[in-house]
């Protein structure tokens, strides 16, 4: 009896196919974030598009409003997205190129590092958001600057929240290693439907709405819609957004400091050296 299966050049081997499938099963079993593909992202899609549909179907004037809400939402969404992704991937770049130890043993302080990454991120943000705004203007005659000076506080809140979410992502990567990298992109697509970027949060299913109400971004996009509706800047909404941003700031800083301590205490630097 042969010790190995006969290798027929004209047939596929079920054993080899099964072996490859099993290899991916082991990886998924030990890195639960990969389950996001079959759990979180489908849920996000349903909530996002379901809520857009619910908004349009449940409001007689929604058709006219939707154009501004969608394009205004996309342009301002890029502020938070670009701010977050620039800082997160700036840090991830150090892990991908195994440069983290080199950085950690220099005199650079943690906040200097974050500030340097955020500074460069501002350039990327201006390019990315500018491109979206110009495209919306050229292709759809939607001029975001017509919203006026009210854009400044809204933009400042979205920029700050983008950076804060990046601190959470960095904290998770420090603690859980490369397995948490998917959060750099994925977390934004959870925040997007919850924040009511394209619709008022009333359109969200009742069970999810409380989550939306604790996010500063919910109030920032709400203020944007008020501007789009020509009602001027709602300073009360901006005040709530600012207060919740301050709370988020404290939480993000405490989380990052805690994760850095854990990183050093457990010797996780060995993952990157």
């Amino acid at each position: 009896m042969n010790a190995v299966q006969e290798n027929n050049p004209r047939k596929l081997s079920w054993m080899r196919i099964r072996s490859i499938a099993r290899r991916h099963y082991y990886v998924m079993l030990r890195s639960p974030h990969r389950l996001f593909d079959v759990t979180i992202w489908p849920l996000v899609d349903v909530v996002l598009f379901g809520s857009i549909g619910a908004f349009i179907a449940g409001n007689e004037s929604a058709g006219a409003q939707a154009f501004g809400y969608l394009l205004g939402g996309v342009v301002l969404w890029h502020i938070i997205y670009q701010a977050q992704i620039a800082v997160s991937t700036g840090f991830l770049e150090e892990t991908w190129s195994r440069n983290l130890l080199n950085i950690m043993i220099t005199p650079v302080k943690e906040w200097e590092y974050v500030a340097g990454t955020a500074l460069f991120g501002l350039v990327k943000l201006i390019l990315g958001t500018g491109l979206v705004a110009v495209t919306a203007l050229l292709l759809f005659s939607f001029d975001v600057t017509e919203l006026g000076l009210g854009l400044i506080p809204i933009g400042a809140i979205l920029l700050t929240v983008g950076w804060l979410i990046a601190l959470f992502v960095i904290g998770f990567v420090l603690r859980f290693g490369s397995g948490a990298e998917a959060l750099a992109w994925g977390i934004m697509f959870v925040v997007m439907p919850l924040s009511g970027v394209f619709y008022p949060v009333d359109a969200l299913p009742d069970v999810i709405r409380p989550l939306a109400l604790v996010l500063p971004t919910t109030y920032a996009f709400d203020a944007m819609r008020t501007l789009l509706d020509g009602e001027g800047l709602d300073w009360g909404t901006i005040g709530i957004a600012t207060a919740s941003t301050l709370v988020l700031t404290v939480a993000a800083l405490m989380f990052l400091v805690k994760m850095l301590r854990t990183f050093r205490a457990r010797g996780f630097i060995s993952r990157y050296s």
């Binding site: 150090e94 190129s97 195994r98 440069n99 130890l101 080199n102 043993i105 005199p107 050093r264 050296s273």
Partner: peptide
């Protein structure tokens, strides 16, 4: 750890296994 930044100003480190930044 309190004086880490000041201490590292006076220390240099290199290892054979560390790559250069890409």
């Amino acid at each position: 750890p309190g004086g880490r930044s000041e201490a590292m100003q006076r220390v240099g480190f290199s290892a054979g296994y560390m790559p250069l930044a890409e």
